[in-house]
Design a protein around this nucleic acid. Structure first.
Lengths: 205, 205
DNA sequence: ATGGTATTAACCGATTCGGTCAATGACACA
DNA sequence: TGTGTCATTGACCGAATCGGTTAATACCAT
């Protein structure tokens, strides 16, 4: 790709990136016209081909951009340093909501790209996604110390409950399109506090 | 449309319907080729145009089919007659899983169709979906009697928790594609029993 | 004016699309 | 075997769309 892309004003770069996320998230790779990306970015198709030598390069650039954005945001959120599972989940979702405010279609884009089996891109996508797959805040249960929680709670099911509800949250958000960060975070905080009250052991010395 | 479609063996009808769900769920209406639907259904494009006079008619037929399938399945599940919220949610999800076994792409299809704003179909889609939108097992909280649940539980948040987790469940399912009904229902039953233990008042006379 | 850079309109060959239609296959009955 | 009926298809069409190129233009500092 042409490095002059990075000399563009940040705002224009992001307009192009978001246009790419948006168009590629609505159709498969093959069925996503470069022309439409250019239109939504407010530039000409020729200019897009000036910065990216072809459609594939643009697509893979966006793919890598997803990885960069998410890893950086999760790191900055300090969710990995949280002292308990509730803060951890809140910070994690806070980071994701922040991302989706700046890049509303990034979630749908990455899901779509991941499952696209077009031979033109399939292998390259796998290669980019692979190291990133394991790291992600995942369905795998983090280490939980039973003495932090009320007695008799099945920690496996507790975590599954919270994990699935969070996924449901993000999914709803990615569908409706409207992302009111403040409202969403306040609602999610209610949810987290509800869980904390429900699950956490209080009489902690 | 040509009524002879309904004279076809049920299995062939369903093959065509599922092919339609699948193709239309992966791309927008405009970008979904009729040829591909015919291929996945194992028939010729000409035959598809024999049963449906054009692409739009086929699409709207599928749209109505979604409504028919879901309302009928939810009714048959008797989830509306359940005596408590836990049974109700279980029966509801059981019905949806059953649907997704027979029609793996129906969820993604209906979501995609709902948000497709192609002027060729937009208005007709709204017209079909409208009466169906209100009925659906929704985010709106069903009437819950506080004396059925443990004291101090915020019923609004309790329901939101369960609702979102269920949505998360369905979303995960619709993505992975593999639908192992038995395993999923057993896992969900675990989840429901966990909630019942957590939320329901036990010392019921 | 001049020179360099960012940006575009116009264009191209190839492909794909929705839709049509004449031809073929399958099967029943004579 | 001949014939009629009906389901099904291959081949085709004009129009539209696609990715990508290129020569020309707009912009701006000197």
């Amino acid at each position: 790709m042409n490095d002059k892309f990075f000399d563009l004003p940040k705002e224009k770069q992001e307009r192009i990136i978001n246009a790419g996320f948006r168009v590629f998230s609505r159709n498969s790779y093959k069925k996503s016209p470069v022309q439409q990306i250019a239109d939504e970015a407010g530039i000409s198709k020729s200019l897009l081909f000036f910065y990216f030598k072809n459609k594939k390069e643009l697509f893979l650039f966006l793919m890598k951009k997803v990885e960069e954005i998410t890893t950086q945001a999760l790191l900055a959120s300090k969710c990995y340093e949280a002292s308990n599972i509730f803060d951890m989940m809140y910070l994690g979702l806070q980071a994701k909501v922040g991302i989706m405010k700046d890049y509303p279609d990034i979630t749908n884009f990455s899901v779509k790209a991941y499952y696209d089996d077009d031979p033109d891109i399939r292998d390259d996508v796998r290669k980019i996604v692979q190291p990133y797959t394991q790291l992600e805040t995942n369905q795998s249960i983090p280490p939980l110390d039973p003495k932090d929680f009320k007695e008799g709670i099945d920690l496996r099911l507790m975590y599954r409950d919270m994990y699935l509800a969070s996924e449901g949250y993000i999914w709803q958000m990615s569908q409706t399109g409207v992302i009111d960060v403040a409202r969403i975070l306040q609602e999610y905080k209610e949810m987290i506090d509800f869980w904390r009250e429900l699950y956490a052991r209080k009489e902690n010395t």
